[in-house]
Design a protein around this nucleic acid. Sequence first.
DNA 1: GTATTAATAATAATTAATATCAATAAGGAA
DNA 2: TTCCTTATTGATATTAATTATTATTAATAC
Lengths: 148, 148
Amino acid sequence: MNRRRTIQRDLVLAAVQKSCTHPTADEIFAAVVSEHPSISKATVYRNLNLLVEAGLVRRVPLPGTWPDHFDRTLGDHYHVYCECCGRVSDVDIPYQADLAEQIAESDGFDVHRHEIVFHGICPDCKKKTMREKSCKGENENGTERNED
Amino acid sequence: MNRRRTIQRDLVLAAVQKSCTHPTADEIFAAVVSEHPSISKATVYRNLNLLVEAGLVRRVPLPGTWPDHFDRTLGDHYHVYCECCGRVSDVDIPYQADLAEQIAESDGFDVHRHEIVFHGICPDCKKKTMREKSCKGENENGTERNED
DNA sequence: GTATTAATAATAATTAATATCAATAAGGAA
DNA sequence: TTCCTTATTGATATTAATTATTATTAATAC
């Protein structure tokens, strides 16, 4: 159970903390491998899980999109997902603590936490869309799981 | 481009509309295959996508859990996910239309929609937990993607 | 009825993530 | 410092949900 400190773990943590873009595991791997070429992708996934478990990093799972993103900001807050480029940003609205209480009353659920994910178009993509006709298909991250 | 009506499509739609439990594609397959044993799982996935596209069925993707669920209720509403048994229920709180506007102002995002997912323990699992020590691990649906 | 082609069944492929396992190295004890 | 224990690593195989492929089947228009 005792954790050992490793260069790999330090690098993964540093990569998340350095980034303000809510990187995916793959993007973190890309960042770390440039400094430490021998690192394996499995090690990145393993350490991200450990760091999330230790509370040093936050996982940002988005409904309907893959893969998960990671966040250096630990406090309660929400996210916006750009449907055009896949970028994830923090949202600057207060935490809606009262919502959970309403449910406990009405449905008998013990609510531990909640997530709000907003979907829209980021300022950059809005600009692009004005010039070109549409930004559909030029999703740089590539893989959206489904589009409803 | 013209859609043709098929027994398979009708059965998939009926299975979703019959159910009040927000079934997964696999559960819908299980329901349909009992009436129509020759149906293929790919056909269920294909038709679910078409029905979502046509606006007859709603996809309920949950952040951090797999697989997607499907919903016969089309209007705007939110969901609770039971961390114990994996059950998904509708939530009886009003739609928070104003949240999106707050973001557009502060972050410059064009927000189209948002989802709120609550995580907690459903009334049934709460009862079970009182009798037994814990319900960890007896998730009947089986596959949770990650547990933070 | 016949022709056209959307939809199907079966299966292979994909993709993010986890499991496996022999080899390596962190860090406490001698 | 050296040795020992075992957490961690790198490489690879595996998993699971979903999508892609393709030959075949069957809706619907004519």
